[in-house]
Nucleic acid binder design. Structure first.
Length: 234
DNA sequence: AAGCGGATCGTCT
DNA sequence: GACGATCCGCTTG
């Protein structure tokens, strides 16, 4: 009923994670395949949905951080009051107006960074916000970056469930990462397709906004334990 | 489980 | 000078 995807995530998360993490060596091969620029040269609604199941990868020296995307939100252009691009181009949001496949990182509430990827051709604004992921590699590094301890399996959700948490776990800041090309492993921050099967997707309203709050532009992998916010029923 | 308020600062009016 | 695409801790039910 559920497709194998959600089941696999909910039944074997820790086992998968520990096995993968212990085999960190050689994982570069598995996650070396970045999504091409054309993937992002589309409507953010399509991109946001298709990014579910893909893997965010960060390379720091020999170490790899990797997490499977389980939740995204689409932000459009002038016709989307909730989008940073709505009020037109500024120094802050310029990446959203540039070519597709680049990191737009912003600082929010005086505390947190959030990662987006630009969509649509140069000159047309749009992006996808990364809201939550399932940790695959670099659990210890993520826990250290987040300042939390992993005492039981449920604690893994504290690492990357939420846009601010994801960014912190990956050490993403505006200063370091804004404008980086996410389609190249040379940027040391990229999005990989490791052949994971397409997930069953739920579409909901976006979280944490006041304007255009009713638009169904949030996408989550059905049944994933790693989505942010209250655990909705499926 | 859900609802609150505080922290904290870059960005644009 | 006001406001956030958030998180955390505390309170209540």
């Amino acid at each position: 009923m559920n497709g194998g995807v959600a089941q696999k995530i909910s039944l074997f998360p820790v086992l998968d994670v520990m096995q993968l993490d212990s085999k960190n060596r050689g994982s570069l091969t598995r996650f070396r395949n970045p999504l091409p620029r054309e993937f992002f040269n589309r409507d953010p609604r399509r991109v946001g949905r298709d990014l579910l199941g893909k893997v965010l990868v960060r390379r720091t020296g020999r170490k790899l951080l990797a997490a499977r995307i389980v939740e995204t939100e689409a932000y459009l252009g002038e016709d989307d009051p909730a989008a940073h691009a709505a009020a037109g181009r500024t120094p802050r949001n310029a990446v959203l107006f540039g070519p597709p496949g680049y990191a737009y990182v912003y600082f929010i509430y005086g505390n947190h960074y959030c990662l987006n990827v630009s969509c649509l051709p140069d000159g047309v604004p749009g992006g996808v916000l990364f809201r939550a992921a399932e940790p695959l590699l670099g659990i210890e590094e993520m826990a250290r970056a987040r300042g939390v301890e992993i005492a039981n399996p449920r604690d893994l959700q504290k690492l990357t469930s939420g846009p601010g948490r994801m960014a912190e776990a990956f050490g993403i800041t505006r200063e370091r990462d804004n404008g980086k090309d996410l389609t190249s492993t040379r940027s040391h921050l990229w999005l990989a397709d490791d052949g994971y099967p397409t997930a069953r997707v739920l579409t909901t309203r976006r979280i944490g906004i006041t304007k255009a709050a009713d638009s169904p532009l949030r996408y989550v992998i059905a049944g994933s334990e790693f989505v942010s916010g209250p655990k909705g029923k499926t």
